[in-house]
Amino acid sequence: MEFIDDSKLVDSYVMGNESALAELIDRHKNKVYGFIFSKVLDKSIAEDIFQDTFVKVILTLKEGKYSEEGKFLPWVMRIAHNLSIDYFRNKTRMPIIGETFVDEDFSIFDFLADPEDCSETKIIKLQIEEELRLIIQYLPDDQREVLQLRIFKGLSFKEIAEETDVSINTALGRMRYALINLRKVIEEKNITLTLV
């Protein structure tokens, strides 16, 4: 079988060939996951960061913002490195939460998932979680389902794919569209997730 280099697979994926992304993930998953695990030393956290890395990869590719021609793996590793740093950063400080919560640098979902909370933080999280539950009602059923399974049940994308009987690529795609549509809903309705 002919070897297709990363840049051609990236172009193919951007043009709509979903299997090209599967090939890229399969090609680099061991190296990327190994790198993340070496930073966080926790299997489940490493799996989540790995999945979040490829969600960010998908978003960037689909939005046409990828410009690392011929440097796909180093670019992915940089994303994985930044998300690993964000994991440790989010554990040590409470984030500012505003209308840009579905942001490149900060995810409200990471904040909601942290189990080490004082009672005040738990109250804040419950309030934000309730606001999120209301907002996601505006999403199409398939996108809402993936978002609920990921945020509120804490399932990995592999588990979501099994639960909803779709491929991991489809689950990732639905999550991507859910985040895009969530951002639109927040902007259209001028919603702010607040701490008070």
Rank of each mutant, 00 (worst) to 15 (best):
residue 2 E to N: 14
residue 4 I to C: 10
residue 11 D to E: 10
residue 11 D to N: 15
residue 12 S to D: 10
residue 12 S to A: 10
residue 13 Y to M: 11
residue 17 N to P: 02
residue 17 N to I: 13
residue 20 A to K: 02
residue 21 L to I: 01
residue 21 L to K: 00
residue 22 A to T: 15
residue 22 A to M: 08
residue 22 A to W: 10
residue 22 A to H: 09
residue 24 L to S: 00
residue 24 L to T: 00
residue 25 I to G: 02
residue 27 R to G: 09
residue 31 K to H: 12
residue 32 V to L: 02
residue 32 V to E: 00
residue 39 K to S: 04
residue 41 L to P: 00
residue 42 D to S: 08
residue 45 I to E: 06
residue 47 E to S: 14
residue 51 Q to L: 13
residue 53 T to P: 00
residue 54 F to L: 08
residue 56 K to S: 10
residue 59 L to S: 04
residue 60 T to A: 13
residue 63 E to D: 09
residue 65 K to D: 00
residue 65 K to W: 00
residue 66 Y to A: 13
residue 67 S to C: 12
residue 69 E to F: 15
residue 70 G to K: 03
residue 71 K to S: 15
residue 71 K to Y: 11
residue 74 P to V: 01
residue 79 I to R: 03
residue 80 A to F: 07
residue 83 L to I: 06
residue 91 K to Y: 07
residue 91 K to T: 12
residue 93 R to F: 05
residue 96 I to M: 02
residue 96 I to T: 05
residue 97 I to E: 09
residue 97 I to S: 03
residue 98 G to C: 14
residue 100 T to N: 15
residue 101 F to K: 04
residue 105 D to Q: 13
residue 106 F to E: 02
residue 106 F to C: 05
residue 108 I to W: 00
residue 109 F to K: 08
residue 111 F to C: 08
residue 112 L to G: 05
residue 115 P to E: 02
residue 118 C to F: 10
residue 122 K to C: 08
residue 126 L to N: 11
residue 126 L to C: 06
residue 133 R to Q: 11
residue 135 I to A: 01
residue 142 D to A: 06
residue 143 Q to E: 12
residue 145 E to P: 02
residue 148 Q to N: 11
residue 151 I to E: 11
residue 152 F to G: 03
residue 162 E to Q: 07
residue 164 T to L: 15
residue 164 T to E: 13
residue 170 T to R: 09
residue 175 M to R: 02
residue 177 Y to I: 03
residue 184 K to P: 07
residue 185 V to P: 05
residue 186 I to H: 04
residue 186 I to Y: 00
residue 187 E to R: 15
residue 188 E to T: 01
residue 189 K to W: 07
residue 189 K to G: 11
residue 195 L to K: 14
residue 195 L to A: 07
residue 196 V to M: 06
